[in-house]
Every structure is written in structure tokens, then in C-alpha cells.
Design a protein around this nucleic acid. Structure first.
Lengths: 90, 90, 90, 90
DNA sequence: GCGCATTGATGGCTGC
DNA sequence: GCAGCCATCAATGCGC
């Protein structure tokens, strides 16, 4: 059981001493990847700006499309719910 | 020139009508990837929690390590500034 | 209960009609004070510049000192977390 | 002259060795005050929320009033300009 | 449902 | 004088 431990996971925990290290490193690796993507996005906006587009508007467009997509998804989910409620498997 | 245009790029702009579409889609693709990574990170924390780790502490550890790295970088930047301030080219 | 109301506070709410006005004015008053302080800060930097200091460096110095303070605070918080994690009341 | 020096202020600069310290401390003191005000503002919003107000809307109200005030100020400034232009002392 | 943490938007400052 | 950069502040989304 790791030191901050609460409930024992059942296994007798032999080596997992550097399990913590592993966890932290996985997270750090992922955050690095995430940062890379973020930088790419910023770069695309920068390019667009260089081509005469208004970045602020562009961001709004993306946000709106995202919101619409979410709404569509919600509606669909709701529809599925209804279908299940009336006995359809969806 | 794209419609929001400010300064003409010089070319007579034949097709680039869906250049905007291309831009938006590139961004959306990247944001999707980013979301995937974020989900992965959350999942790692969730797993860790399942193994008895205190997520709040884990996050602090990660944050502190990150900040230390930033600090190192910033000190270096400060040093460069000092060097410039005293007339060194850096 | 004020008009945007959600949960009733229990009292029968006689006058509070201009409670909103009061709130907005308190905020505006505070923001004015805040702006004054910000102006003072800018002025100090300007003076310093007039005395031959490099403002950019000054800002970095201030930022680093602040970050160091934050770091200290955060490490202390982490320590408290550890103590709690091992069952100490902190 | 302080070390990052550019133009000499004319005085022979005896002690001002800790002038820098003074500057930094003045700034830090002011930033602390500023933070206090910011906290107060947040607290007012929190109170308002507790009284059933919608914080997001409140913020919009404050922002709009601020903008209106700015516009009023601009118009007044413009008016002054006109008055001066036609020979009035304002 | 609330508070927190992250992310995005805005405004000020610096350099060209 | 304007554009780019950075720092601050608000808004959204997530977890408890």
C-alpha cells in the first residue's frame, strides 16, 4: 500500500515503491504532449492571423460550433433515453 | 484574400474560399486531441486514487515540480537580462 | 428575496428593493480604489525608470520574489497535507 | 546612479545603494493593498450570490456601467476640445 | 450544488 | 504610432 494509503487494495504490495514515481512521470509526459497540442493550436491561430483573419472572431466561431455540437449530443442522448424508456434498445 | 481581409496579400486569390473551413477544422481536430490527453491525465489521477494515493497531494507534487522547472528557466532569463543590462550581448 | 432569486432566505423581505443598487455601488467604489492603487504602482515604476532603473528587470525581480513567497507557502501547504495524510490534525 | 543606469540624474549619488530595496518594497506594499481590495470585491460578489443574485449578470451590469461612464467621459472630453477650438476656455 | 483548477479574453507595456 | 507580448481577470468545466 502506498504511503498516503487509505484502503488496502488486497495485494501484498512487494516492490511498488516507485509506483508513485511512475505515476508522476506518466502525468508529466501527458502534460507535455498536451502543451505541444496547445502550442500547435496557437500556431494555427497565428497563421490564420497572418492570412488576414480576425483571431477573436475565429475563436468565437470555434466556440459556437463546439457548443452546438454539445447541444446536438445532449439532444441525441435525451432521445436515446426516451427510446429506452419506451422499450426501444436505441 | 479571405473575406475578413485587411491588407491584400498580393495574390489574386482564386479558390481559397474554404481556407477558413480548413483552418477551423484543423483547430477542431487539435482540440479533440487535446481533450483526449486531458482525459488520459484525469484517468491517471483516478487510477492513482484507486491505488490509495491522495489526488490532491499528487497534484501539488506535480505542480511544484513544474514550478521548479519554470523557476530555473526564469532565473536563466533574468541572468540574460542582467547581462544585457550591463552591455553584454547575452 | 431579490428578483433573480433562487432559494428564499426565510425573511419576508420588506425594503431590500435597492439592495442591488447598494451592491453595485460597493463594487464600483472598491474598483475605483483598486484602480488608484494600480496607478500608484505604475507611477512607482515610472519614477524608478526616471532614476535609471530598468523597469523590465524590476518587474522580474518583483515577480520572482512573489513566486518565491508563493513557493514557500505552497511547500508549507504540502507539508500540512502530508501531515493530514498520515493522520495528524496538522 | 543605480547600476542598470542610463542617464545620470545630475546628483553625485552617495548612499542610494538601497534605493532599489525601497522601490521594490513600495511596490510590494502596494500590491498587497491591491490584493486586499480584490479580495473584498470577490467577497461582495459572494455575499450577493448568497442573497440570490446571479454573479455573472452582476458582473455584466458593472461592466456596462463602467463602459457607459467611459463613453460619457470621452464625450465630455470631446466637447471640451470643441469648446477650446472655438475659443472657449472650457 | 459549490468551490477549485484550468483555459481563454482583455487590456497595458515594450519595442520597432 | 502601431503590433506583439505579457500579465491580469473572468468564464467554463471537473471533482467532491
Amino acid at each position: 500500500m502506498p504511503f498516503p494509503a487509505n484502503t488496502d487494495s488486497g495485494m501484498d504490495d512487494p516492490v511498488h515503491g516507485d509506483q508513485l514515481k511512475s505515476i508522476v512521470e506518466r502525468i508529466e509526459r501527458l502534460e507535455e504532449e498536451k502543451k505541444t497540442i496547445s502550442d500547435d493550436i496557437r500556431q494555427v491561430y497565428a497563421e490564420a492571423k497572418g492570412n488576414g483573419y480576425d483571431v477573436k472572431i475565429l475563436r468565437k466561431v470555434v466556440a459556437i460550433r463546439k457548443r452546438d455540437a454539445n447541444e446536438r449530443a445532449e439532444e441525441e442522448a435525451l432521445l436515446d433515453l426516451y427510446l429506452q424508456a419506451v422499450g426501444e434498445s436505441a
